[in-house]
Write a protein that binds this DNA or RNA. Structure first.
Ligand SMILES: Nc1nc2c(ncn2[C@H]2C[C@H](O)[C@@H](COP(=O)(O)OP(=O)(O)OP(=O)(O)O)O2)c(=O)[nH]1
Ligand SMILES: [Mg+2]
Ligand SMILES: [Mg+2]
Ligand SMILES: [Zn+2]
Length: 574
DNA sequence: GCCGTTTTCGGCCCGACTGTTTTCAGTCG
């Protein structure tokens, strides 16, 4: 897992360095391989050990050349070509690529012709007006570089989708009320519901693009205009993110939305498919090469259909096999956004939640849930004000009383029980047996070596009371890496012990991720989708968890809390 | 460097916007 990310990072670096050397095509190949590794949930060392180079060459975009490099990294912890490239090009030159507007061609020229090999030198040269001496560079280029350097210093990290989506919806409404705008859609990674987003991409349909753009850049949300045309405008928003607005004519809604939803890799794959079929695909339509006729542009369905494919839901558009599935008409019926009947991982102010149990239950009733589990922290999670056995009993008495008051919802007693370092659960059987839902979570010892961590989880999964593993990799987006263990082994055990795994919808968690979900489903492990709410507002996070499950190609049947109460009771509670 | 029911060689997505340009390369989405 971590090793895949390590190798991917090296491949991205190799791609950049080759780009700087003006090498053609190879950078694309290395980036494609890097992306394959990032999305692959089995660690490369395991594959190499089991099947050698043949094993890695089965993966898309990985052939003999790149395969050998993976094997070398697994065996020696380094890759020769990368070591060579690093000697040829100073690290600072690659960093210069982070400056917006600075690509490999410009960076290479600044390095070759002015010996600029660091961000500091770049700044100094720009300030002193020494860059304009180069043909093709001018005063404006120097200003752009200086402004770009400021952005690099700020260091923009990707933002949490769950935080940005509500804001983006509001912004979309404002754009929708610009005169002449007929329709607005969120696009890009937001529409695909990636767990993090770099920017907000919005598609607007209107006849007169220029008018819309003029009004758009005057919105109070806009801090600064980066570029502005009649059909494409990029701005920096006051809230800190960039926003790309694309305005297209309503007739090309479908082709435009396919294009602007992406992913890039999905688009490229679709376009190559079109080429094979004697057509051309862009944001204005799918065109027949011979007649030049626009064959499909109105709806997304039309575009896919004309390419011989089923409609592909946005959450699946990552070019990780969905195109082949759509060609075989085997796109799964993904779990719907209204399919969840109960939240199974929630907190109250008995531990570290902000609201009372009753306030949480009231909101759960409002959300229309059939059942609702209250799962506060266990005693070892002291910072989270975890409950000892005595307080658990008291809390459960309160829940019994609330059940009488709210007969329209089935309240489930539970706990998010710490999995201790020895793998034992934080409560004994006499406490656990009183519970309907037992969430097993790791909240300590994240750096435990993989072998021990695997054993720890296996021990926990021996516990007959365990219902599911909570936030199963423990990652915190932008903050903490996943803890490492043998995921395949754990999933196989989960399947045989009938223990589910969670898709945690909390915006900074979103854990499992899409690739782990797909692996879990391959192993016939059931999912539960929960908010891990610490307040009544948090209960609205459910849609993000469902999105994540859809990104992992989950169907309703794969998700335990998509079962209506009676079936849930029969199949899950014991 | 990868890949193949039209290819084992010769392709590899395609268009918008900008700056420095007299006709377009570079970057980006
Ligand atoms: N055909 C094509 N489409 C692209 C390319 N780059 C981007 N797009 C399309 C698909 C993207 O989803 C969409 C928005 O671009 P972004 O750079 O904002 O990427 P995206 O939103 O997918 O991810 P992000 O979270 O912003 O990094 O534009 C490209 O190189 N070719
Ligand atoms: Mg985007
Ligand atoms: Mg964008
Ligand atoms: Zn929790």
């Amino acid at each position: 897992m971590a090793i895949n990310k390590e190798i991917a990072a090296i491949f991205y670096a190799i791609a950049d360095l080759l780009d700087l050397q003006g090498v053609e095509w190879k950078p694309i190949a290395f980036r494609k391989a890097a992306r394959t590794l990032e999305n692959y949930s089995e660690p490369m060392d395991k594959i190499v050990k089991a099947k050698g180079i043949k094993g890695v060459m089965e993966l898309p975009g990985i052939g003999e050349g790149i395969g050998k490099k993976i094997v070398q990294y697994v065996e020696e912890g380094k890759i020769d070509e990368y070591e060579e490239l690093k000697k040829e090009i100073p690290a600072g030159v690659r960093l210069m690529l982070n400056v917006p507007g600075m690509g490999p061609k410009k960076a290479a020229r600044l390095y070759k012709e002015l010996k600029i090999d660091s961000l500091e030198k770049l700044e100094a040269f720009a300030k002193e007006g020494k860059i304009r001496a180069l043909s093709g560079f001018g005063e404006k280029s120097e200003q752009d570089i200086l402004m770009g350097l400021e952005l690099v210093k700020k260091g923009q990290e990707r933002k949490l989708m769950g935080i940005i989506l509500p804001y983006a919806r509001e912004l979309a409404k404002k754009i929708n009320s610009i005169p002449g705008v007929q329709r607005v859609e969120l696009a890009g990674s937001l529409r695909r519901r990636r767990e993090t987003v770099k920017d907000i991409d919005i598609l607007a349909l209107a006849k007169d693009g220029k008018k819309v753009m003029d009004a758009f850049v005057k919105l109070p949300d806009v801090e600064k205009v980066v570029s502005k045309g009649d059909t494409k405008t990029a701005v920096i928003l006051k809230m800190g993110l960039n926003c790309d607005l694309r305005v297209l004519s309503p007739e090309v809604y479908g082709a435009g939305l396919v294009h602007f939803t992406g992913s890039k890799e999905h688009n490229v794959a679709l376009r190559m498919l079109a080429i094979k079929k004697g057509m051309k695909l862009d944001e204005y339509g799918l065109f027949d090469n011979k007649s030049g006729k626009n064959l499909a542009c109105k709806n997304e369905e039309d575009v896919y259909a004309r390419l011989g494919m089923q409609y592909i839901p946005p959450e699946m558009r990552e070019n990780t096999g969905e195109i082949e599935l759509a060609q075989q008409k085997k796109i799964p019926e993904l779990i719907g956004y209204d399919a969840i009947h109960g939240d199974l991982h929630t907190h109250t102010n008995w531990s570290d939640g902000a609201n009372t149990t009753e306030e949480m239950v009231v909101r759960a009733v409002e959300l229309g849930y059939d059942y609702y589990a209250i799962t506060d922290h266990s005693k070892s999670d002291v910072i989270a004000n975890g409950l000892n056995e005595k307080r658990v009993k008291e809390h459960f008495k309160e829940i019994d009383a609330l059940q009488k008051k709210f007969p329209q919802i089935q309240l489930l007693k539970g706990a998010e029980v710490a999995i201790l370092s020895n793998g034992k659960l934080d409560y004994g059987a006499e406490t656990l047996k009183e519970m309907d839902i037992v969430v097993g979570s790791i909240h300590s010892g994240f750096k435990t070596p993989p072998k021990e961590m695997t054993k720890r989880l296996l021990t926990a999964m021996e516990n007959e009371y365990l219902t599911f593993l909570g936030h199963p990799t423990g990652r915190l987006l932008n903050q903490r890496n996943p803890y490492e263990y043998d995921i395949e082994k754990i999933l196989e055990t989960a399947a045989s012990n009938r223990i589910a795994v969670e898709v945690n919808a909390f915006p900074s968690r979103m854990d499992f991720d899409a690739d782990h979900i797909r692996l879990a489903l391959q192993k016939k492990v059931k999912l539960v989708i929960n908010t891990d709410s610490h307040s009544t507002q948090n209960l609205d996070f459910m849609e993000f968890g469902i999105a994540q499950a859809r990104r992992g190609w989950a169907k309703k049947e794969d998700v335990l809390n998509a079962l209506p109460w009676k079936a849930f009771q029969r199949e899950v509670l014991r």
